[in-house]
Amino acid sequence: MEGDFIKIHKWLLPLSWLYGLGVRLRNECFEIGILRSRSFKTPVISVGNITVGGSGKTPHVEYLVNLLKDVAQVAVLSRGYKRKSRGYVLANSDTQMKMIGDEPFQMKHKFPNVYVAVDRDRCHGIDNLTQNEETKDTDVILLDDAFQHRYVKPGVNILLVDYHRLIIYDELLPAGRLREPLSGKNRADIVIVTKCPKELNPIDYRVLNKAMNLYPFQDLFFTTLEYCDLVPVFDGEAQQESIPLEGIKQNNVLLLTGIALPKQLEVDLKPYTGEKEMVTLTFPDHHSFKSKDIERINATFATMEEPKIIVTTEKDRARLLDLEGLDNDVRKNIYALPIRVKFMLNNEETFNEKIISYVRKNSRNSILAKGKNDHKSKDSHRSGNRPRTISFRNN
């Protein structure tokens, strides 16, 4: 079992105890009704975690978008972390990244027909999506990173757990990376262990299943991340349209990241680089690149031997697009590495059925509720059979 990215600062455990006391008090206020959660008529699916840092939320939200976008009008609601705006903002094709944040910007440009909005107050954001004239046809709302936002009572609560930072071995902030006690996982309807190695064997699944110690009403799934062909960051300026994964080994690589866990990406890319050089430039998660950072990128790439490329993430791409000062050589040779979610143990169809059934059963759209729009999404690779109806408990 892996817990290779967990680091416990034991000397901070007393502070973690105090932090946990505050979080438990808040959760108890929701449990006894002092603080209230709102339910909504429109189906709401929340995707989140109870740790600080990346657990694969964005690719899992994108998986849900792909699953539902051909059978429902999907809206994605995010906080819009580090955006330069306030309140509710509905994205359009011209909305700048700084107004909504890098991840919402990424999703809006990948899925132009999906409503993408940001609002720190998720209840206020849902009210706007369901009541405003331009978005009131919303059939389902996906909440990105809202597991701790308990003022919303989602119909389906999905908790993501990073395989490399299993919550069962972690501690509360600031000693560890947990945002709330381990008991918080009990609110989840679905738990997904993400970023699993592809070579997991049956005993690993059994150990994980037992270690997670879930209730019978909770479903456990396992996913891994698959990397796709590299795509140019700057359209029209790259030396070629795309680079297959196998083509990476022909180049020395500058790996440029501003994400929560860059080490895993470095490990994953190593088999593709082979004997070629891989230089890493690492910045904090959601980093806003400054002029000195641009100079560092230009200088580092200039010192590398040909042939060479820069590999970055889709999230970083969103923050690089508007940067000024990047050398022409950098702009021509920088590529984003798309990722997608793959379910393990052949459980993709089971997961898909649960989600589609929930949306159909609770939809305000009568046609959607009757299941008359049951055609296969070309992106989701799901079965075209009509899913059975699944009833989720009240959270």
Rank of each mutant, 00 (worst) to 15 (best):
S291M: 09
G54K: 00
A75E: 01
R24S: 11
G48V: 13
R317Y: 03
N347C: 14
P59Q: 13
L256C: 14
A238F: 10
I6A: 11
V267L: 05
V89K: 08
E295I: 01
G54Y: 00
R26C: 02
D139G: 02
G236H: 03
L178V: 05
R86C: 02
L178N: 04
D327N: 13
I192Q: 05
V47C: 13
H109V: 07
L265P: 00
N328S: 15
Y115D: 01
C196H: 00
H375V: 14
P271F: 04
T303A: 14
D327Q: 11
D374T: 11
R122V: 06
S363R: 02
T138D: 02
I167L: 15
L18V: 13
P181G: 05
F289P: 07
I248Q: 04
G258F: 05
I259E: 01
K10Q: 09
L323C: 00
C228L: 12
E133Q: 14
G325V: 04
S85I: 07
I203W: 12
K84C: 02
A369F: 10
H60M: 06
K263T: 06
T51W: 07
K195Y: 08
L225Q: 14
T300G: 15
T42V: 09
Q131E: 07
E2H: 05
H375Q: 11
V116Y: 01
T224N: 03
T273R: 14
L345I: 15
L160N: 12
T312M: 11
K290M: 11
N92R: 06
N328L: 15
T303W: 02
N186A: 03
K342S: 12
R386D: 07
D4V: 09
F105Q: 00
V267E: 12
E133L: 15
Q106I: 04
D285H: 01
S366W: 02
S380C: 14
G22I: 02
Y63F: 15
N66I: 04
I6N: 06
G236F: 11
N213V: 07
G20Q: 09
N113E: 07
I167D: 05
L261V: 09
M97V: 05
N385S: 14
I34E: 03
T303V: 12
H164I: 13
N365F: 10
P262G: 05
T130Q: 03
I32G: 01
S366K: 13
L77D: 00
R364L: 08
D70A: 11
S357M: 13
G371W: 03
M344V: 12
V207M: 15
E171H: 15
P181T: 11
D102L: 06
T273S: 10
T273Q: 06
R120Y: 01
F105V: 00
E324L: 14
I248F: 10
I100W: 08
C228I: 13
R177M: 07
V116C: 05
G184P: 00
I390K: 07
A336N: 05
D170C: 10
T313C: 01
D329L: 14
N251M: 09
L182D: 02
G155W: 02
K108M: 11
N394A: 12
S55A: 14
H164F: 12
G325Q: 03
K263D: 10
V341G: 02
N186T: 04
I192T: 06
T194I: 03
F217K: 12
L173C: 03
F222M: 12
L225Y: 13
S78D: 04
G176P: 14
P338C: 11
K210C: 06
I334A: 04
F217A: 12
G125R: 08
